[in-house]
């Protein structure tokens, strides 16, 4: 399975996302912001960082990158996409996910090991977790406070699209402790904390982050088995 990792100018965790996908067992394809060709990848990670220096708003300019034009179409067609931190911000700016990420309520950048509760295991990126599983992965952001209007929040909750919530403390003031959400189809997930930093015992607080990458490989294996059997998505 081939997972693409996009590099924008100012992407920082692209190498980490690639490493995590590799450890999970994927072949990694590095994608370039200026190249609209997705090179036939089976899934895409938009990594953390400060694309375009966070000019205007986080993710506001990356949304217009050539690679995003093809990515938005592909995502609407079912391609699994995971946006981490800045990637989450880009997905919101591209209207693949609702809401927005604003300045942390306490106004500081904050990096800590954060407990989350996985609340939706129906997505392409979380099917390997159990419902309600508590996981520990690093959070690090200055603008990670998730906001949306009440109706959107209610809708996300009603449709089971809150993928993960902060527990034992909310690091940035996100509404309803939301750490990750998904689109209606469950193929696009945005998450503020960094699963790619929790994939090795030597460098991470846990191995919990691997689950996101192994989940998508499982989803892809299932899909391709279905396709070979003549089924449909």
């Amino acid at each position: 399975m081939r997972i693409g990792v996009v590099t924008f100018p100012g992407s920082l965790d692209d190498g980490d996302a690639a490493r995590a996908a590799r450890i999970a067992g994927a072949d990694v394809v590095r994608l370039w912001h200026g190249d609209p060709d997705l090179h036939g990848v089976d899934a895409v990670v938009l990594p953390g960082g400060f694309s375009y220096g966070d000019a205007l708003r986080c993710g506001a300019i990356a949304r217009f990158a050539p690679v995003m034009e093809s990515l938005v179409d592909a995502a609407r067609g079912g391609l699994p996409v995971l946006g981490i931190c800045n990637g989450f911000q880009i997905l919101c700016e591209a209207h693949l996910l609702p809401g927005a990420l604003t300045r942390n309520q306490h106004l500081h950048f904050r990096n800590r090991d954060q407990f989350l509760r996985v609340e939706s295991t129906d997505t392409a990126w979380t099917n390997g977790f159990t419902d309600g599983q508590e996981i520990l992965i690093p959070v690090k952001n200055g603008e990670g406070c998730y906001v949306a209007d009440q109706r959107t929040l209610d809708q996300l909750e009603a449709e089971g699209r809150v993928v993960a919530r902060y527990i034992r403390g909310n690091p940035n003031g996100s509404q309803r402790d939301i750490a990750a959400i998904t689109n209606e189809a469950g193929n696009v997930v945005g998450i503020m904390p960094h699963p790619e930093h929790a994939v090795e015992t030597l460098t991470g607080p846990s191995l919990d982050g691997l689950g996101f990458f192994t989940s998508v490989l499982r989803a892809l294996a299932g899909a391709s088995a279905g396709a070979h059997a003549g089924g449909h998505q």
Binding site: D113, G169, N170, L207
Partner: peptide, 27 residues
Amino acid sequence: IEAEGIPAASAAEVKEPSPGGPIDPTA
């Protein structure tokens, strides 16, 4: 404050400092 869901480090929530240290791989 912590009781209201705002972060405050407490003894209870310190599972494992990071990075570093042997980690429970079963987590």
